[in-house]
Amino acid sequence: MEKAKKRQFGIIATIVLAAVIVLGLLWATAAAKQNEEHQDTLQRVEKLGRIVWGVKSDTKLFGLMNTKTGISEGFDVDIAKALTVQISKQTGVPLSAEFVPVSSSSKIQLLKNTNIDGTVSTMTITPEREKIIDYTNQYFDAGQSILVKKDSGIKSIKDMNASKYTVIVVVGTTAAEETKKFAPKAKILAVQDYATGMQALKAGQGQAMSTDNAILYGFATENPDYQIVGGTFTHGPYGIAFDNNQRPMVKETNKALATIKKNGVYNKLIKKWFSDVPGLDWHELEAK
């Protein structure tokens, strides 16, 4: 009798505790969400005198961590720097640019948490994402492609529409969904970052890595046994992203973007990063 009572108490206590934990977490989530809203990014940036940009750290040509300095280098990083200078000129507020490495899966959350003010991180503009974050106009034209081993015999994404094939993608990119449209029977292996994806491809965990052509070019230059095949099968230009409802910040940034495209700064950066990529016509990427 005594024992049964004790056991019953134990079970009830466990359930109550579990419920408290779950409710606590839900409350914290709701609180965090509330905190996210109605902070004007432009005001915050001007007040603190700096823009914190989320940039990639694993993507050659766009944002790759220099292991000596610990700072990311690439087209995205330079664009962010140029925009910061231009916005500073427009607003008359001296601004410095700071950089935080972000991954494909973390960047939206970091924006929402205001850990970063904006992100220039090879981010494709999609209607789903536009519902929860704000995009600027496109700053880079990209499309999805596949990287395969040279002797694989695979010519395009359509060749991979069989269950014996595995396509490697990175979590948090649009690549998985797009791949499913063109090769619905292929298996998808989602990894945390591009470097792991490339290693997995080399280890034979998949037959192709799929993401934007611009990113794949970076890997193709490093790994001569691999090549990009079949051209692009999607059109997915990159945009600079801010949190939801940040019209003033987006407006300022679009203005700055248009200016650097006009004054030649943008084209200089295109040349700096893409003129040496074999098989890529970098003039195509220049602002007209």
């Binding site: 494909s104 899966s105 939206i108 789903e128 929860i132 979590v171 948090g172 990119t173 998985a176 989602a190």
Partner: peptide
């Protein structure tokens, strides 16, 4: 991770 990436 996949659900988080698609639902944000």
């Amino acid at each position: 991770n996949m659900v988080a990436a698609t639902t944000f």
